[in-house]
Design a protein around this nucleic acid. Structure first.
Length: 419
RNA sequence: GGAGAGGUAGUCAAGUGGUCCAAGACACCGGUUUGCUAAACCGGCGAGGGGUUCACGCUCCUCCGCGAGUUCGAAUCUCGCCCUCUCCGCCA
């Protein structure tokens, strides 16, 4: 969430920047409630101070055997007023918190203002595959080979759940292993977190309260299924004050990801493009504020390294203000080209959330001994999501006879050169 | 799931209704002494919020797992919940 003090002190500038994300944003009601809140604080604290002094006087009189009955009556009345004002204050605070929870993060100045399609292509790497023969859609090809079976998966769980069989299962596990160990061997602490978590955790990541419809919920236990390990990893240091010397702290996790995709999807997202369950290797960093943007560049480079190692053609895209997730200040996507679809698809999203999540999760660091703790910056990046990678490999590495070349780096796990 | 014990500041830990405005120790920071290191001694040392100040600061409120309640007053009493440990049950 955004710092309330900043809203109070730099309202005009802040509001202008937020409107580039959502033109309907208006900070006036938050400002008014904050003024009311501070008035109440001043009143209630004066009364509490009086009450505390009075109560101490009661204690003294009782010890000294003096009469305190008149004072007690006054204090009882005082205490009632405190209770009433406290309730009013709580309400004002809650209204402010609720409003703040829905505001998006302030976009970084380098982020282009505009709609989804106004994205900026920062660079393009590699070449599209040789189109001397018609490339087949990954779904047709995989079903023909019997290595992807959505029909049987639907019997188990409904539509849009994948079932990998045989060489697809091997390839999927190989991708996970390859990416997980690659990052783990390059300075990211490996983590296998719980795959379910409570509402507080998803509030910190900012999936809640705004995007509740997008995630699965287990009613009986009041737990949510992980939609992205970002949500889990950001909670790793919740309510902690980290040592400046330990920053940046960087982690890599493997988790399955579950998404309801409540909005639905069209024909162009057949197959593995948009599914309720997919596997993802996620990178996450906790950094100091002044190093978070250099760390974002490093994060993007680490994600790119995977695509380069797999030999896939991709481009790097800077998202616009309207297209970013609520918590992000700046987001760069890696998009891989799928010749079967004739377009690029996101396989990684790397964001700097600055202090937005840190403030929600109370994640701080101490710049130097004795100095006041400050909020860290948090960054997340897929490194990468497997389902679309699988589609990318099936389409990009296709041979004329329908066989598929297994990328060199995955062969130790897959065990064969072609599928 | 059942029974019991517990949760206090960075760590350990005292505290069972009123100078608790949370003792003490360790760790950490500064200083004194000192061939060096160490030790000893002295001092400092939690967080959030409000007010005030150019600022250093001063001042008030809140926080003893979380949330309600009783009371003039709660770390302390009551209720609910969460977590940890031990034992039992179940189980990959």
């Amino acid at each position: 969430m955004i710092d309330l003090r900043l809203i109070r002190e730099q309202r005009a500038d802040l509001e202008a920047r937020l409107k580039t994300r959502d033109a309907s944003i208006d900070l006036s009601s938050i400002i008014e409630r904050d003024e009311r809140r501070r008035e109440l604080i001043a009143q209630v604290e004066t009364l509490k101070s009086e009450r505390n002094q009075g109560s101490q006087e009661v204690g003294r009189r009782k010890r000294d055997g003096e009469d305190a009955s008149e004072l007690l009556a006054q204090l009882a009345e005082l205490s009632d007023r405190v209770t009433a004002l406290d309730a009013e204050l709580r309400e004002a605070q809650q209204e402010i918190d609720d409003a703040l929870a829905l505001l998006p993060n302030v976009p970084h100045p380098s982020v282009p203002a505009g709609k989804k399609d106004d994205y900026v292509v920062l660079k393009t790497v590699g070449e599209r595959p040789d189109a001397s023969f018609p490339i087949r859609h990954h779904l047709e090809l995989a079903e023909e080979k019997g290595i992807l079976d959505f029909r049987r998966a639907a019997e188990l769980a409904g539509s849009r759940f994948p079932m990998y069989l045989g060489n697809a299962a091997r390839l999927e596990m190989a991708l996970i292993q390859f990416m997980f160990f690659r990052h783990a061997n390059r300075g990211y602490e490996p983590v296998l977190p719980p795959f379910l978590a409570n509402s507080k955790s998803f509030y910190v990541s900012s999936q809640l309260p705004k995007f509740e419809d997008d995630i699965y919920h287990c009613d009986r236990d009041d737990l949510y299924l992980n939609p992205t390990a970002e949500s889990l990893l950001v909670n790793l240091h919740r309510d902690e004050i980290l040592d400046a010397d330990d920053l940046p702290k960087q982690y890599v996790a493997y988790t399955p990801c579950f998404r309801r995709e409540a909005g639905g999807y069209g024909e162009e997202e057949r197959g593995l493009i948009r599914v309720h369950q997919f596997n993802k290797v996620e990178m996450f960093k906790f950094t100091t504020p002044d190093s978070s943007y250099p760390e974002l560049e490093a994060l993007i480079a680490d994600a790119e390294g995977v695509l380069e190692a797999l030999g896939l053609h991709y481009r790097v895209v800077l998202l616009t203000t309207e297209d970013m997730a609520q918590q992000a200040s700046k987001t760069v996507d890696l998009e891989v080209y799928l010749p079967g679809q004739g377009r690029y698809y996101e396989v990684s999203s790397c964001s700097n959330c600055e202090a937005f999540q840190a403030r929600r999760g109370n994640i701080r660091y101490r710049p130097a001994p004795k100095e006041k703790p400050l909020y860290v910056h948090t960054l997340n990046g897929s490194g990468l999501a497997t389902s679309r990678l699988m589609a990318a490999i099936l389409e990009n590495n296709q041979n004329k006879d329908g066989s598929v070349r297994v990328p060199e780096v995955l062969r130790p796990w897959v065990g064969v050169e072609t599928i």
